[in-house]
Write a protein that binds this DNA or RNA. Structure first.
Lengths: 314, 314
DNA sequence: TATTGATCATAAGAATATCTTATCAAACGT
DNA sequence: ACGTTTGATAAGATATTCTTATGATCAATA
């Protein structure tokens, strides 16, 4: 294997440019013998003469000229690697793979992604939407850089930071808009529609009702909040959805939204990443941006001033 | 300036491939700590993390992946430089710039160039045809690799090696074919046609006639041997040409060729190159090839068996 | 839950490599 | 001939890089 060094290439390039050992050495901020030796070593390593040393002038051999071109290419590539590193360390640049749970993604991402691409022009955001266990696995596997899930995750290898708290609201058919607010326990007696197994929000809803989060209770489990709301709108029962989903999911459905009183059910949405991730520093900043966007998203439409939302289907 | 080393790039590439410090170190034939340190140094130099060290696995960061690609490019370029050097040192390859004097070039080159390109497939031969002083200057300036001229040149910085001796022959009009052979001195009394000032052959011819090689004697100086022969053929006088030119130049002219007797006039054609030229070793071999070709060229057509050659103009 | 094994980081000293200063040798110009 | 310029060489100092030994962390295991 050829064993030249980048240092030799730099010296060589300088000598090729100056055609004078003394001046090239000065340009490299080393002594002339140091340069002479490195050039000699490089010639030995290559097994070819790079310069023709005349008494009064130093001239590149033909091979030397070709080599100088190559050397410049190599040095430029090495410098580019440095530039690339600098760019990647100073700001969040390049690919960022975010995982988000399905009960958050559609409501949070539009705001966050817009904000992020505006703030970090070089950022290439990839979104993965699936349930928490898969996200955690992919995070651990290094297939994701960060994930937005309901806390706590309690993985010792993961850093977690809360983003915002999100209340659950009751969704009833428009007909029931004025019925009294059921208690958590009384929800058990009603026809409570839930997301299918695997979604953390299903477990959180069950937990609120003091129900075990076991296997499917009914065959009516839905695969999305949107479906749930449509089912409620069709009079199939009641459901809980996270507050942030309200503006989007109830826009085109005739349902009544009610906030709970007293011990309001809620969950904490947070961001997690590997403690060992080199992006850790930047992910904290990133979390701050998501936090702001999320709090705005939760407050913005203020759909809770009225307990009822009876838009009809388009 | 970024100060990574090729060594680091090699180690880095190995670690990127193995994703395991121990095995990568083994592949590089160094100890694991040595690899760890070099990778760390490289990360410090770049100011960016290349690997995410997990307890059970080593993983490239996103930047690391990009860097690995670049590193491979750089390493490949460096290896190519080595290959290039090997190719250039083993045999005569690449550009070879040969200077040849005009009284040799047309007669010698066709044979030599064919022979050379056959023997050295990678050789790219450039020919420069001009008078000796210019050739020597260009040789000294490094604009030529070697030159074929009449010896001696007597430049201490130049190596010179004889190729062959070349007699001068007398060219007379066909009418004079049977006239007695003039002596060197009697040539002075005849109308001796010569090449223009600057050609060494002019001086050699004058020297044979014991004439000073000063400024133009006549306005009839020709710019090529071909013209000289045509002039002789037209009855304008007599001339001398080097033996090697006979087959070519008298093919289509009605002239008589006579060799001198006794102290036959001749010159030594040789090859010269800078003593400091890195091609010096190969140029000796090269000279040997030219020598053979030249001797064949001088013998081959054997036009001297008959003193007369009276082909007519086509 | 303590233990073990695997894995990478760190430390200290040895081995190399690289640099500097001083000097030499060749070659050019005066 | 003589001094100047220029690159090569020598010797010792400095810096880097390597090795061996050890530490720390984490996961799998008993």
């Amino acid at each position: 294997m050829i064993n030249i060094t980048l240092k030799q290439l730099r010296y060589f390039e300088a000598l090729a440019r100056h055609r004078h050992f003394g001046r090239a050495a000065e340009a490299c901020a080393i002594s002339q013998p140091a340069l002479s030796m490195q050039i000699k070593d490089m010639e030995d390593a290559l097994g070819a003469t790079l310069f023709e040393r005349g008494a009064r002038q130093v001239r590149l051999t033909h091979f030397g000229e070709v080599a100088a071109e190559r050397a410049r290419d190599i040095l430029r590539a090495a410098d580019e690697l440095g530039d690339l590193a600098r760019a990647s360390r100073e700001r969040l640049v390049g690919r960022l793979r975010i995982g988000v749970i399905p009960t958050v993604a559609p409501y949070l991402l539009p705001k966050v992604v817009g904000e992020l691409t505006g703030r970090f022009p070089g950022l290439d955001i990839h979104v993965r939407e699936t349930v928490t266990p898969k996200l955690i696995q992919e995070l651990a596997d290094g297939r994701l850089d960060t994930a937005i899930v309901a806390l706590p995750v309690s993985e010792t290898s993961l850093e977690e930071t809360p983003l915002f708290e999100e209340p659950f609201v009751l969704v009833r058919s428009a007909r029931e808009a004025n019925a009294p607010l059921p208690s958590a326990d009384s929800l058990r007696e009603m026809r409570l529609l839930l997301l299918e197994e695997g979604h953390c929000f299903r477990d959180q809803a069950l937990s609120f009702c003091n129900l075990p989060s076991g296997p499917p209770r009914e065959v009516l489990d839905a695969s999305s909040l949107s479906t749930l709301v449509q089912m409620v709108s069709a009079g199939m029962g009641v459901t809980l959805i996270p507050a942030m989903a309200v503006p989007v999911e109830t826009r085109s459905a005739s349902v009544a939204i009610s906030r709970f009183e007293g011990p309001e059910p809620k969950r904490t949405v947070g961001m997690v990443w590997r403690k060992s991730s080199p992006l850790a520093g930047q992910l904290s900043d990133f979390a701050e941006i998501v936090r702001e966007a999320g709090q705005n998203a939760a407050r913005d439409p203020k759909p809770f001033s009225s307990q009822t939302n009876d838009n009809l289907l388009a």
